[in-house]
Design a protein around this nucleic acid. Structure first.
Lengths: 195, 195
DNA sequence: TCGATATCTAAACGCTCGGTTGGCTATTGC
DNA sequence: GCAATAGCCAACCGAGCGTTTAGATATCGA
């Protein structure tokens, strides 16, 4: 009973995601979200509680899709850490959206504006990825794919650096190719480092 | 004639710098600046025109001091790119302030909030540093200090990545040592890459 | 067809922001 | 000591923010 919604909930979140992605949480206003989604603030508040609720849905979806992407790579024959990273990098670079960097990293840079649960979500996301990288490094080192004398801690430092550096490169550089070049260089450096 | 100022201009800018450094331009309010400097908004506007004027003075001072630091290293016997970078890294890591990352990088991430001249200042600062690194790479390659087959473009990609990645590491990581570890790893990677 | 109900639009709310102003206070030259 | 000057402080301004609400509108069951 009653009037029907004139918008699709998921599609609205998807459109909002791209605004948050481009401008960040704080810099995105309700006006921006109304314009991008075509939904009046009332509808946004009705469906997502408040601005942070909408952002939470966008961010969790984003993190989940990135995770799914990585798992997709590992389960379709791209064995080896470098293989996964390489394919991930290729996927990244082809996606126009990623010219705005990584939503998770961007959000961590404005964590003071976010509620506690969102900060924990971001922390968990990062820890999850870093933990997966570390586990892969250790198992591949044990299996002899990587150098026997590889210092895992040291290597993780570079992995972490690259992980946060590449999105930052894409956001700070006017040149859209800066991230692609950085990624290529990083892969080269890792190859000489790891093997 | 008239009443004397109750504050020192340079000291005020220095204190304001640390607030901008920690919170970024946009997130720093006049209230914050009043509290940190002990100077009423009237005084700040009288001495620096407006919020952006104060920020301009802080940012130019910051960039100049970093440049002076680098030049200090090169002119006191630390020849070689890696030597300079290493010493710069050590200086960075000892400075408590750099737990908040690099003001220039932080500012480039919110360039939409800054006036045209500040964006150009930031661009020039980055280009200056990157240009100096490139020139050093080329001359050291020619002099035989570095590998003869070193791909300069490729190498610059990594340099740029590290340059923006390290400050981001320090700002996104709750662990204060993340940047130190990232810097150490980056130096190791560069050593194997360059030599 | 009509009343009940869910949704839409647009206006308004309270708040904080950067920026300004006017009355008070300290310092100066005479 | 007194008028002139410059600086200080607090209150105020308009704008924009996220959020709420009131009234109009569309859709449903009966």
């Amino acid at each position: 009973m009653g009037r029907k919604k004139s918008y699709d909930r998921d599609e609205t979140a998807e459109r909002a995601l791209h605004v948050f992605w481009e401008k960040g949480f704080e810099q995105t206003s309700l006006k921006d979200l109304e314009a991008a989604t075509g939904v009046n603030r009332y509808g946004l508040y009705d469906s997502f509680t408040d601005k942070q609720g909408l952002f939470r849905e966008c961010l969790t979806g984003y993190c989940a899709s990135v995770m799914a992407m990585i798992e997709g790579f590992t389960s379709t024959g791209f064995s080896g850490l470098l293989g996964v990273i390489e394919r991930f990098a290729e996927a990244d670079f082809e996606e126009v959206h990623l010219h705005h960097g990584c939503l998770a990293i961007t959000s961590m840079l404005e964590k003071e504006c976010l509620s506690e649960d969102l900060q924990q979500l971001l922390g968990g996301y990062m820890d999850g990825i870093l933990g997966a990288i570390r586990a892969t490094l250790e198992s591949e080192k044990k299996a002899g794919v990587l150098r026997k004398d590889l210092d895992i801690e040291d290597c993780m430092g570079l992995m972490h650096l690259i992980m946060v550096g590449l999105p930052t490169l894409s956001r700070t550089s006017p040149d859209a190719d800066a991230m692609r070049r950085g990624g290529k260089s990083a892969l080269n450096a890792m190859r000489t480092w790891l093997a």
